[in-house]
Amino acid sequence: MIEFQNVYKSFDDETILKNVSFRVRRGETKIILGVSGSGKSTILKLILGLIRPDEGHILVEGREITRLTEPQLSSIRSGIGMVFQEGALFDSLNVLENVGYRLFEEGRMPESEIEAVVLRVLGFVDLEESIDKMPAELSGGMKRRVGIARALVGNPPVILYDEPTAGLDPITKRTIVELMIKLRDIEGVTGVFVTHDLQAASIIATQYAAAGEGGRIRFHSEGESSSLLNTGFLMLQDGSIGFEGSYEEMMHSKSSYVQAFVA
């Protein structure tokens, strides 16, 4: 579904990514770990075509995107939702206009229908009552949740998360992690989750969501030592992939870098 083949990327004189290759399968969530400035967010921007690699190939849904023009990239981007680090909500638009931005821009739906769609996705993140608020009136956690709601509009099969839990309190963090698990297990969304929050990553790798009686979503644990098959880890080290594997493999890795990170 998403594939990096020997990708290199530099900014000015600094090489950020060196010979990075990996694959994210349909329905899988790939968690990318690494220290700040290791190129994690760069990978997400490359998937969206917001920046281009210096060398290598990037395939999304089997389509090489590195040489596409901006209008051609639009069709690729319509299938990808992106949750930005601080939400990246448009300051001058309210929650309705932010979440329904893509639909308002397309101009194919009447406003009442757009509002219904926005209310539905806001229900998913439990923020229906905030539909008329401006971003300045929202807390940090609410902004992230609105950011997730915006990424969900149009039911994109892929969602990219750029540190959505960074700097949040444990309760809000848990809410966002549960949203991500629901999207993966209930909606079948493919995800790429960039973070240095190992606690959030471990919950995503070891817990799953299932619809219980009356459609109520329940979260179950696979246990601390066992990891889910649909969640993989990738660790960046000095611009290259230092580790790739499951949660269990990562926790038992003998690499000093991985050990320093997970300790």
Binding site: E70, R77, M82, F84, A88, F90, E105
Partner: peptide, 9 residues
């Protein structure tokens, strides 16, 4: 926000 705008097409 500019990146978000581009990401939203």
């Amino acid at each position: 926000q500019i990146s978000a705008m581009r990401a939203l097409g």
